[in-house]
Simulated scan of single mutants.
Amino acid sequence: MRDFFRRLKRYVQGTILLTLIALFWPQGADFNEMARERHDEDNTLQPNAPLRIGVSWPIAQRGDELINGMRLAINHSLEDQLLDGHAVELIIHDDEGTVQNAQKIATSFADDEEIDLVIGYANDNQAIAAGVIYQSARVLQMVVGAPTTQLATYNHPYLVRTLPTAKDFALKLSNSFDKPIKTFAVVLEKNGYWEEMASQFTIDQIKKGAKRAYFRTFPAELPPDYVRETLEIRNQNVDAILFAGNAVQAARFINKARAMGLTTPILCTTVDLETIEQTVRADTQNVILPGFYDPDAKTPANKRFLSDYLKTYETLPNGWAAQGYDALRLALTAIHESQSQKAADIAWTIRYMPDYKGATGLYRFTKQGDVEDKDVFLRTPRF
């Protein structure tokens, strides 16, 4: 019976992925021809050839810290003699956080024979939509901001993800209590990643003896106003609330719950601390989010990154700056190691790379291109 449900789960996941491919597949581009052209190229890294790297990121929404981190990575890689005389050119596009822009940008990158690597993507739908293009055109997609693990699940050869997994985030949140809790509530946005987070959190808490006393889901396209949810949770008198959803909805829930007098600790699955801080008007006491970067980490990699970022930009880096820095450093290390800039060579070199110590912590990759056992940190929003 367990095998049946495992096969059923894989079938459903496959059906969802095929549906997403059908929905997101852009018309008019001959990706097979693009792939053939890349396959026919000599994979030997030519002396002094420029390295053109695409960047797709919602700059107007999220800021340019990711880009700043990547530029610092270029400087450090030059100092460390990783570039072997090659200039690095970042081809930067603001995708504005939309699927349509992500597809257009991905198509333009795929059509550029000199671009074999693209870094970015801040949300799941963009990463999935662009990923369809990159897999077909044989371009390596390094996903640094979208939390989805669905792409890595299907063994795509031209994919590397650098965010911690849903399991890592969920277990960190579950272990955030000073003492065991007895009851908890879950408010869930229906989305594969958030569901995975909520499931992992629930399983771990039940193993510890806690009981899920309240559970409510809502479709992403039709979120509630959270009045009913707040009232029902208040009546249950739970010890903690897990809000599994995007940052905008998490902020709306926090505002409503606190305005209605609900003081219960709220754990949010989103890593987008900046949006929470900009949007929450209520008291953020007892609000906790997971994070992937600790600026106070005393590791040599982070001390160098933090010090030089401050000198260069005269401000503290955020998590996205660290993500951009680490992603490009990983890629340039792989190019140096493989002496190739072809997507497959870079991807496999990263996947088989020994443990890599970056600004955000230790990187250890699976053969599917996902990072495992990544450090996760807890954060509290502030005004």
Rank of each mutant, 00 (worst) to 15 (best):
T107R: 01
V118Y: 00
I59N: 02
A29Q: 14
A87L: 13
Y121C: 05
A60E: 03
D375F: 07
F24P: 02
M353Q: 02
R234D: 15
A327N: 01
F184A: 10
I74H: 05
M260T: 01
V139A: 00
D40I: 13
D272L: 09
V55F: 00
K190C: 10
P224M: 06
T284H: 11
A347Y: 01
D355Y: 11
M70K: 07
T217N: 08
T315M: 10
R329K: 15
V287G: 03
L117E: 04
A106L: 01
K9R: 07
N75M: 15
F4E: 12
Y352S: 15
F253K: 07
V160Q: 02
N175R: 14
T15Q: 07
M1K: 14
T269M: 11
I288N: 11
R228D: 09
P180G: 09
G261H: 01
P265H: 10
W57M: 05
D272M: 11
P317M: 03
W25Q: 12
P265L: 14
D40Q: 08
A240T: 12
S199Y: 05
D94C: 01
Y193V: 08
R216V: 15
D294N: 08
T275Y: 09
I266P: 06
V143T: 09
R212D: 11
A247K: 03
R234N: 07
A152N: 14
A73Q: 05
R234V: 09
D112W: 11
R216M: 04
L117C: 02
D3Q: 14
A347R: 00
A331L: 06
N125P: 13
F109L: 02
S340A: 13
A240C: 11
R351A: 00
D345P: 05
T264N: 12
A250M: 04
Y134Q: 03
D375K: 08
D283S: 04
K298W: 14
G261R: 03
P164A: 06
N68V: 02
E196M: 02
I59T: 06
D112P: 13
E96F: 06
Y352G: 14
R6Y: 06
G54C: 04
F201E: 11
I92Y: 09
A250P: 01
F215Q: 08
L310F: 10
A129R: 05
A60Q: 09
R6I: 06
A130S: 00
Q249M: 14
G14A: 05
T217K: 02
N101W: 05
T153D: 09
